[in-house]
Amino acid sequence: MAIFVNENTKVIVQGLTGGQGKFHGLRNRAYGTKVVGGVTPGKGGQDVEGIPVYDSVADAVKATGADASFIAVPPKAASAAILEAAAAGVKFIVCITEGIPAQDEAKTFNTLLRDYPGVRLLGPNCPGIISPGKCNIGITAGEIAALPSAKGPNVGIVSRSGTLTYQALYELKQQGIGVSTCVGIGGDPVPGTSFVDCLAEFQKDPETHAIIMIGEIGGSAEEEAAEFIKANVTKPMSAYIAGVTAPAGKKMGHAGAIVSGGKGTAQGKMDALRAAGVKVGLNPTEAGSLMADIVKGLK
């Protein structure tokens, strides 16, 4: 088991003939992901190292039976690409594109909600998702993720930041702890998939025994997660929040990472998570060793 994706997930890459799409699409295939096709308007009939390219998502889905899409197109084209995938019947969409205007993002999210309620969007501006040994969609270097062990305990990871996700994967691998699924929800103001969505799935997933959550300043997604954890999550958790020392009013690299009007501070998020019973580390390494302690207790 894993969340959102598994060994049977069939993926198409929108933008497969572009630089990012080709690089990561081929890496995902090399990892063992079933990358069954690519989409680039006007390039239908070509192939990228044996992966057939189609003119539209509808054509690609019809020919390959794909149920997931990996979107690696520029910001101008991303919203249309997301809606095209949803209209073609794709149920799981991963969009790594960084730099989409917030107005477009809000409109796209609410269009999906209204017209395609069964579709899940991960991202934009996210590293993607990996279920080690089964499926890797996005930019995560597969080799840094530890395989889950059959008897467990295995850890689920959910994070707003790309490099901190790698850091978490790496720390768990160093400690010899298996990973069930690692989800990067992305650092934009309107993420398609939230912490709460992932926590709900991890709570249900029999292969996941504990959860690491990595948040950062800005918005209230971590506070909402804390409320959800209090009421619904029984699996043990550790967490880390980046940006304790971030100055107010500045976007810290991610469009969504900003403390404004005294709201969205790291301290407030850490307090909320602690109150929900989550062990909060003051740096990524500490969150990793807190998780190692949790896992020891589960064995």
Partner: peptide, 11 residues
């Protein structure tokens, strides 16, 4: 490298 790691480094 990465906004999250950069923030974390400051911390």
């Amino acid at each position: 490298n990465g906004a999250g790691l950069a923030m974390s480094t400051l911390d």
